[in-house]
Write a protein that binds this DNA or RNA. Structure first.
Length: 568
RNA sequence: UGCCCGAUCGUCUAAGGGUAGGACGACAGAUUUUGGUUCUGUUUGUGGAGGUUCGAAUCCUUCUCGGGCAACCA
């Protein structure tokens, strides 16, 4: 059940990623009776980001493709970092992305079962209680090139281990006094197998189980077990868990559990941003951004507030593919995905984004005269209709749309030059008015009465069309222009601290004058994505007030003129 | 340097013994009342060296490079 089903026709047309190939093979081999059951397993200790979206689309998409199911499972085994605030935001974000989970589970639902698994391991002589300190355990673990050492606790009897472990559960010991370890192989070349800790004592309040427990299983002793309990067929995770897979399978084997199959894929990296939860949290806590939902953040909440749509994110996740090699995706691809959608769907409007817009006075247009222009809402979609746009003797235009000494190929306005005011008339710039400081304060123009849009009999062809807003009808707004949060492509690979790499110009707030229809449309309720003609895609922000609407720039339009200029 | 994983256009991603293809980007042109969109075209790639084979991106060996693993985090 998702908004983005993949039908079988599409499936045969496109190539399969390596995970789909594995699933195909598993089905062909008759595993699990052809059943496909995945899960999305976030830890509720932070907000979801675009990297999680990749995982969500993968897990839900795969189940959907094979007629299977996906569970939402919170990996909540560390009560000190987890919180219901995160649980709620995660559920909200997954739903917003367009996915519905089959079951909502929590690793904490299984604490009793997992505890019993631990006792089973002890009974089989495959786990022991260790009184060593964290430092001692670390030291005894060895290094990647030297084997670990065995300690005296490793030889405790089953009875003693059982007694000790039960007393750990009963709360007889303070935090960190003892741990339960799996007895695997202290000399294994795989560090994960050197008697990993599977239970630790934490007298901490858990967001779901409250104070029922003072011992909590570690990831390795909870994740695979949870997969098994839920009969997950394919357990998809990121590459860093690859070395955990032998342990994952060891537990399954020793405990004789349902054999879920863990498959690892490369996590998403995006240019000009960071994806680590720790760093994102730091940006929020140290106020480098306004919050988890700051529109510059790569979080789902931030991207949503920025104006991205669920479909555009799904499209992005589809396009980046699934593989095992490390990758750094050009954020331009994300922008392409939202432009592609919004070009089709976003109503066009006119807004002049300028602290000091240029006033243009049409000297041969009667004082006090007004006309209503009917301008198409979306040239890509005739069914979007037209809207009324008031026109008058004085209009604002962008300062960038006028140049006193234009270079070659400048199609906009200049002294003696002509342009069309979008949806209205062709005008000619007759005079430039400056103040004492030499700054242009006004353009005096004439219009061609026969050139009215839609009934143009003037026969005049102009190269440029610019947008405008009638001065007496203009509504003031605040517009937030966002740019990449970091000034280097790959902050994670830089030697400098990532906070030194923050782009100081990632947010520019400007005053804008917008056409009245815009305010009416956006105030009517839904946060609709719009295009400010020639400027980009924007969305109304929740910070808006009745007095001052606020718009976030989702993405710019491609700017061929800027490119032309760069060429020199 | 112990173990594991990986390496294909600038960036992603296909091809799994039989013509290296797609997307994004870039470049050029056409269209355009958004320097947007759309359309057309162009450019660029199998990390190195050996081997197997009629034939290798694909299989083998080796080298190089990149990533991961030594939390009572996940």
């Amino acid at each position: 059940m998702t908004e983005a089903p993949r039908d079988s026709d599409e499936r045969t047309e496109r190539s399969l990623n390596f995970i789909e190939q594995i699933v195909d093979e598993d089905i062909a081999a008759g595993k699990n009776g052809g059943r496909v059951h995945t899960r999305f397993p976030p830890e509720p200790n932070g907000y979801l980001h675009i990297g999680h979206a990749k995982s969500i689309c993968l897990n839900f998409g795969l189940a959907d493709e094979y007629g299977g199911q996906t569970n939402l499972r919170f990996d909540d085994t560390n009560p000190v970092t987890e919180d219901t605030e995160y649980v709620d935001s995660i559920k909200n974000d997954v739903r917003w992305l367009g996915f519905d989970w089959e079951n909502e589970f929590y690793a904490s639902d299984y604490f009793e079962q997992i505890y019993q698994f631990a006792e089973t391991l002890i009974q089989k002589g495959l786990a022991y209680v260790d009184d060593s300190t964290a430092e001692e355990i670390s030291a005894q673990k060895g290094t990647p090139t030297e084997p670990g050492r065995l300690n005296q606790y490793r030889d405790r009897s089953v009875a003693e281990n059982l007694d000790l472990f039960r007393r750990m559960r009963a709360g007889d010991y303070p935090d960190s006094a003892k741990v339960l370890r799996a007895k695997v192989d202290m000399a294994s070349p795989n560090m994960q197998l050197r008697d990993p800790i599977i239970y630790r004592i934490k007298h901490a309040h858990h967001h779901r189980t409250g104070d029922a427990w003072c011992i909590y299983p570690m990831y390795d002793f909870a994740h695979g077990q949870s997969d098994a309990i839920e009969h997950i067929t394919h357990s998809l995770c990121t590459l860093e868990f690859e070395v955990h897979r032998p342990l994952y399978e060891w537990f399954i084997q020793q405990l004789e559990l349902f054999p879920s199959r863990q498959i690892e894929f490369a996590r998403l990296n995006l240019t000009y941003t960071v994806m680590s939860k720790r760093k994102l949290k730091q940006l929020v806590e140290e106020k480098h951004v306004s919050g988890w939902d700051d529109p510059r953040m790569p979080t789902i909440a931030g991207i949503r507030r920025r104006g991205y749509t669920p479909a555009s994110i799904r499209e992005f996740c589809d396009r980046i593919g699934i593989a095992k090699r490390d990758n750094l995706i050009d954020v331009g691809l994300l922008e392409f995905c939202i432009r592609e959608e919004l070009n089709r769907t976003a109503p066009r409007l006119m807004a002049v984004l300028d602290e000091k817009p240029l006033k243009l006075v049409i000297t041969n247009y009667d004082l006090g005269r007004e006309e209503i222009m009917h301008i198409e809402n979306n040239p890509e979609d005739p069914s979007a209709g037209v809207r009324d746009v008031p026109f008058s003797r004085e209009v604002y235009i962008e300062r960038d749309d006028f140049m006193e000494n234009p270079p070659k190929k400048f199609f906009r306005l200049f002294p003696g030059g002509m342009v069309r005011l979008k949806g209205a008339y062709i005008i000619k710039c007759e005079e430039v008015v400056k103040d004492n400081a030499g700054e242009i304060i006004e353009l005096r123009c004439t219009y061609i009465p026969e050139s009215r849009s839609g009934s143009d009999t003037s026969g005049i062809n102009v190269k440029g069309t610019i947008h405008w807003v009638s001065v007496p009808h203009a509504v003031e707004a605040e517009v937030r222009l966002y740019d990449r949060l970091f000034s280097v492509e790959n902050p994670a690979a830089d030697e400098r601290d990532f906070k030194e790499l923050i782009n100081p110009n990632s947010l520019e707030t400007v005053r804008a004058f917008v056409e009245p229809a815009l305010v009416a449309a956006t105030r009517s309720g839904s946060l609709t994505n719009v295009q400010f003609m020639r400027k980009g895609y924007f969305i109304l922000d929740a910070d808006s007030t009745d007095a001052l609407p606020v718009f976030n720039r989702t993405a710019t339009l491609k700017d061929g003129w800027a490119k032309e200029q760069k060429k020199g």
